[in-house]
Design a binder for these strands. Structure first.
Ligand SMILES: [Mn+2]
Ligand SMILES: [Mn+2]
Ligand SMILES: [Mn+2]
Ligand SMILES: [Mn+2]
Lengths: 221, 221
DNA sequence: TTGAATTTTTAGACTAGTCTAAAAATTGTT
DNA sequence: AACAATTTTTAGACTAGTCTAAAAATTCAA
């Protein structure tokens, strides 16, 4: 079994995540930005991960994970999301407080631990941000009939199913306006000129910019 | 707040532990053996930790933790023992399976997490090996009327309270002979020439070498 | 109390991960 | 197609942690 450093694992995870919404290879700069580091550091790491056959990489052509690399990334994401669930469900942390801690816990090496944690939590399907939790086998069950709030239409009634961004400030903002997983909303209006969406949450009107609306996923009722 | 690397934390913990049963300073070689590393590496690390005022160190004179260093060490030991308790009490691991995992978990940085875990576990006083768990304030409650099995006298009846060694093979051996925390034993005999102790455990006779007897702590009834 | 054995430190090297600055390759634009 | 802008890689340096081999200090024992 190939043993990876924390840094290597963080790169794999970042590449996997970026690949989710990008066609083709991931560029060095894109990855540098995501990793909050410099392109030259990324190049060095890509060479190393390519050497270990976790990704394919050719000079100036960006990179793409191999199956091996993908399954490593999924194992880390599985751990991250299980630990976040543990922190919220068992230790009563808020959904805005768990990401940084899970960022460390995801690197604990023990498949046995991960699988027992999964069982202890009752095999949860999604984490506290509504993100699906990969199974033991690395498979992600597709989450059903979700759309982004940005794609909603006026008059729709819907349930909040997830957030695409788990940054503390964003989640704290959502807390402040009373928006949680499972919250019911009504789409009241959309402004043509900037795409803003006006929503009713617990009898209060809230206006979301298109940027925010793209970070929230809902299930129409 | 001073941020330490995993390696620095492991050194502090080792120095603390060695200091428990050694008078005066800890020597470079002693520490090298404990850390499974070379004396030259230890010297480098001692310089660094001295620089950070976590220990006092003078060339050729060994080292001793400062109060700052001690409280860091205690915080790591607290985490280690709480996580071991979590693994055994909540995830049903055996006491022989948890040390390696806790060796990693003890480095997770979040006082909030540690304190909530403590609460979730019901503020346990001892870990699965009978070792006391330091409190939030770093204080260790002294464990009452314990002696080592090696110091027992023939005819005594006692309860197993702890083990001084948490190596997997040792604990597995204890499992095999049916010795756990809380097990009741009778001291049947002591052999003068090698110090072996013959003990009755669950109606079976078992003979312990003096080496083993020094690793087991008991409470006489 | 002096020489030998042991312990400890230093010197120099290596790996992992990062950085800055400069060079090279690619991309885009006229 | 040529040149400019942008992206990416390389070269060289730095820190942390480790190692081996050699030098220095301490300890031990005759
Ligand atoms: Mn997260
Ligand atoms: Mn991480
Ligand atoms: Mn342990
Ligand atoms: Mn450790």
């Amino acid at each position: 079994m190939l043993r990876l450093t924390q840094s290597e694992e963080n790169y794999l995870k970042a590449i996997f995540t970026l690949s989710q919404d990008t066609e083709g290879a991931i560029s060095t700069n894109e990855l540098a930005e995501k990793m909050l580091t410099k392109a030259s550091s990324v190049t060095d790491m890509l060479k190393k991960l390519c050497e270990k056959e976790l990704l394919e990489y050719q000079k100036y052509q960006g990179c793409a994970l191999t199956n091996e690399g993908k399954s490593h990334a999924l194992a880390i994401i599985r751990k991250h999301r299980l630990w976040e669930t543990f922190l919220v469900d068992k230790l009563s942390f808020g959904w805005d407080e768990v990401h940084e801690i899970a960022e460390q816990l995801e690197h604990i090496q023990s498949t046995e631990l991960t699988d027992r944690l999964d069982e202890f939590l009752g095999f949860p399907k999604v984490d506290p941000h509504g993100e699906p939790i990969p199974g033991k086998d690395g498979r992600i069950e597709s989450v059903s009939n979700r759309i982004l709030l940005s794609e909603s239409v006026v008059g729709m009634r819907a349930i909040i199913m997830g957030v695409e961004d788990d940054q503390t400030e964003f989640l704290q903002y959502l807390n402040k306006i009373g928006l949680h997983l499972g919250t019911q909303i009504d789409i009241l209006d959309k402004l043509n000129f900037d795409g803003s969406i006006i929503v009713m949450i617990n009898d209060k009107q809230v206006q979301f910019s298109i940027t925010i609306a793209k970070q929230i996923s809902i299930k129409p009722l």
